[in-house]
């Protein structure tokens, strides 16, 4: 009698277990298959081009602030930035007082910097462009670089991943050119809005060097643009640089003298 009752109990338990497993499998398959389907449906190269199309324009004007946090102190620099293509950019620092009037002109792979306190223009040649800009987590190169990622990198979708509640395609970018600073990047892209939410920058060896977070996208001139980009140099401790965009205009007409050395005067 006792034995029969035990067997019945076991029978019911195993049946219950099987039912549970069946439902779990259904949940697992239903939750994964759309993602997998979505992952296989995404054309990484096309998505990257669409991302570029959203964010990239021939000319750009940005009014923003660079908030440099070196772990001990926080400095805020206000800067107006005019960019044309990949090669030319002009920045004018408007605050704080000690940086006010500082101007930077990048043209022909050279950077000129004008400091009003010394009333002098200094040429920051080739390799100096790679140094940290004003103690931030960005190099002069990072700051003035505006390459179309789709032209420089080959992309493939690694996986789909949810980031801050948004289902993102994780794109692995491998450089097509031998001389690209970062040979590998990893992007978290919202395939719906064609925007980057996060970016990882890697060394040639594969070591993760920097992260960039793109925050609070807003609509401007029919495009989506982040209000903030937060750079973190992961080799340093507790540092971050926030590039906060207050105003942005695409395809603006920039007077030619903005990219001439004559602009570098008081």
């Amino acid at each position: 009698m006792m034995h029969r009752a035990c067997n019945r109990k076991l029978y019911f338990n195993s049946k219950k277990m099987m039912t549970r497993l069946f439902f779990l499998a259904i949940i697992f398959v239903t939750s994964l298959s759309p993602v997998n389907a979505q992952e296989s449906n995404i054309d990484a190269k096309l998505l990257l081009t669409q991302v570029d199309d959203n964010i990239w324009s021939n000319t750009k004007f940005i009014q923003g602030r660079l908030i440099i946090d070196n772990g001990r102190t926080v400095r805020t620099l206000s800067v107006d930035n005019w960019m044309e293509g990949v090669e030319r950019s002009y920045s004018h620092y408007t605050a704080p007082a000690r940086e006010r009037g500082t101007k930077m002109l990048k043209a022909d792979k050279k950077l000129w910097m004008y400091t009003p306190r010394a009333d002098r223009t200094i040429l920051i040649a080739g390799h100096l462009l790679r140094q940290s800009m004003m103690g931030s987590d960005l190099s002069y190169e990072d700051m003035s670089e505006d390459k179309r990622l789709s032209r420089v990198y080959d992309a493939k979708v690694e996986k789909m991943e949810t980031l801050d509640g948004v289902l993102c395609a994780v794109l692995l970018l491998t450089s097509l050119e031998e001389d690209t600073n970062y040979q590998t990047r990893r992007l978290w892209v919202d395939p719906e809005k064609k925007i980057i939410l996060k970016q990882y920058l890697y060394a040639k060896s594969g070591k993760l060097l920097k992260t960039v977070e793109f925050k609070d996208y807003f609509k401007t001139s029919g495009r989506l643009f982040p209000r903030e980009m937060i750079y973190r140099d992961l080799l340093k401790e507790n540092t971050k640089t926030t590039y906060s965009f207050d105003e942005i205009q695409f395809d603006v007409e920039i007077p030619p003298e903005y990219f001439s050395q004559s602009i570098l005067k008081r």
């Binding site: 390799h127 790679r130 031998e178 001389d179 690209t180 600073n181 970062y182 040979q183 060394a203 040639k204 060896s205 070591k207 060097l209 080799l235």
Partner: peptide, 15 residues
């Protein structure tokens, strides 16, 4: 410690 450098073509590397 992590060592970071650039190669002849300017590519960033670290190990």
């Amino acid at each position: 410690a992590v060592l970071r450098w650039r190669d002849r073509l300017g590519v960033i590397d670290a190990r």
